[in-house]
Design a binder for these strands. Structure first.
Lengths: 129, 129
DNA sequence: GCTTGACCTGAAGTTGGCTCCAAGTCATAA
DNA sequence: TTATGACTTGGAGCCAACTTCAGGTCAAGC
């Protein structure tokens, strides 16, 4: 039965973020004490850890909401979760390719810049087709 | 002397984007005809191509504005541009590392999922510390 | 003369994930 | 008893890079 400040500290989230997660329905039915103060149960905190971990993997809060809904029914969930994970994996691979290409191109420009005594080959490269 | 629609089509940008670029000062002093219609000169279009190319390299519009200002003075610009490019390169490398780590972790989860006949190891992985 | 379509403007809305604010309640410590 | 500090709320603000909207002008074609 932790209060919001303790939970925030424990999880490395801000209290505003915790309230925001509640507002968008990512965590639900947080108990309140007589004064209206949120009292997080262990299960709520586990849910929040789930959110954090899934977010770190690259899922959006919307996708995490889906994952959390799947959680109630693991048998039904398996293929759906697998599909979501595969799709996310594809996105990451694509993202990776694009960034690698950018990195290589920029790296080449910087090398060129080192090798060129005057003028600015980086700016020049933007000028020509 | 092209009109905004032609330029948009030629560059693969929307007319709204072109007007937006003008609003934020990324392109300046676009001529107008008697009716107030924008008339883009070749130099304006070159500038826009510069913007597109720099954006593709991963520079933000703000950074591109700086680059464009440098352009007037290539000698002075060189070290500044080099520094900006190096910094961007570092960012890209960092980004690359993070995404690779995510990719690997998710990939492992999907493999585990393939190898596990029942239950959902992906969801399970979010549950435990 | 009327319609169509491209253009104009300033302002507001969108996205995701927070972050901050003002104004108020409540329990505890000095 | 009063001051502190953690909590409450609804709502606004933030970021980038657009996108959409409402309402208006203008030139060309039928």
């Amino acid at each position: 039965m932790k209060r919001i400040g303790e939970v925030a500290l424990a999880l490395g989230l801000s209290v505003d973020t915790l309230r925001y997660y509640e507002k968008i329905g990512l965590v639900k039915n947080i108990q309140r004490n007589g004064s209206g103060v949120r009292c997080y149960q262990e299960s709520d905190i586990a849910r929040l850890r789930f959110v954090k971990r899934a977010q770190k993997i690259g899922f959006s809060l919307g996708e995490i909401a889906s994952l959390l809904n799947f959680r109630g029914n693991p048998q039904k969930a398996k293929p759906l979760v697998r599909e979501l994970a595969l799709q996310k994996l594809t996105e990451l691979e694509q993202h990776l390719k694009e960034i690698t290409a950018l990195r290589d191109e920029l790296s080449q420009l910087v090398n060129l810049c080192n090798a060129t005594p005057e003028g600015c080959p980086i700016l020049d490269s933007f000028e020509t087709d």
